[in-house]
Design a protein around this nucleic acid. Sequence first.
DNA 1: GTCTATAATCGGATAGAC
DNA 2: GTCTATCCGATTATAGAC
Lengths: 186, 186
Amino acid sequence: MAKPTDTRTRILAVARELFAQQGVRETSLREIADRLGITKPALYYHFASREDLVRSIVEPMMDDIERFVAGRERHDGAEPAAAHDPRELLGDYFELAWRHRDVLVMVVRELPVLATLEVGDRFSSWRRRLILLLLGPDPAVAARIGATVALGGLSDCAVEYAHLPPEEVKGPAVEAAAAALGFPRP
Amino acid sequence: MAKPTDTRTRILAVARELFAQQGVRETSLREIADRLGITKPALYYHFASREDLVRSIVEPMMDDIERFVAGRERHDGAEPAAAHDPRELLGDYFELAWRHRDVLVMVVRELPVLATLEVGDRFSSWRRRLILLLLGPDPAVAARIGATVALGGLSDCAVEYAHLPPEEVKGPAVEAAAAALGFPRP
DNA sequence: GTCTATAATCGGATAGAC
DNA sequence: GTCTATCCGATTATAGAC
């Protein structure tokens, strides 16, 4: 039953590649269709609109991050515990960013284009909640700034060193992030 | 001699604001003209083309960064000394990013749109040279990763905490970056 | 599922009057 | 310096045949 990759999947793959290379708004449906050797109307058979295509690419990552954050928060309404081991949380966060690094580049570089999907607000929310998990409630400004350096720096690494094997990147990246957070190397 | 702000300056201000808010490619000349109460052809009296307008906004920042990096490199062809105090260099770098934080957001989010200005290549070059200044020639991968966290995190802070007074942000941000680099708090 | 043909819209840019 | 009017190209999207 080796389906030779159906058209919908091939469209998604080509779109992902072009969006990452030249930007979302800078890629037209014509360009995607040409690359695949089909025509524009054929795209509309598989996706209701241009926005539907974009959403189909972005949403799996968004859902994955939402699960990541929500799964580590308390659900009983009690105060969120800062009981998370920083290195473990940062390591898991690195692997998450790494898994989605292609779409991640696209998203962080194009928040304005993706405004209709409210990507910016959701990212802010996740970062706020992650800082809460790392530092506990009401952290001082200085600690929050350290956390911003740590989390922002980790995402940058997933993008910057995408050509290296992840095992080689993860360790040093997590150590640097932990140090920025105020947990220096043992 | 209180010139009531000439039109060219007003155009640049409105364009900067709209570009930062909704993206470069997502802002049309019509939108800029409407906001100013003039028409599109009037824009063309002040700028030769759309690209000329974008360039006029981005270039001052680019020149400033180039001067920053070049001014700290050795010019005699000798090996680049790693003799820079990390906290001093990081602090100056923070202030640079802070000064240009509005245009900075626009640029890092829209590398694809600005491809014709070769913004991406120039940014890569600056980061590479800064890492050289911080770590000396041929740094190990782990050290480079720490530097990526440090420099990336600093830029993020200039954007993320743009609403706070810079004196409040700079200290903690530089300390976090230095720790990520491997120079822990004394 | 994919095509041809086409509608409707919007973008950047120019000519020429005032 | 700013306007009206206009051109040209490209884009999203749809209708209808195969």
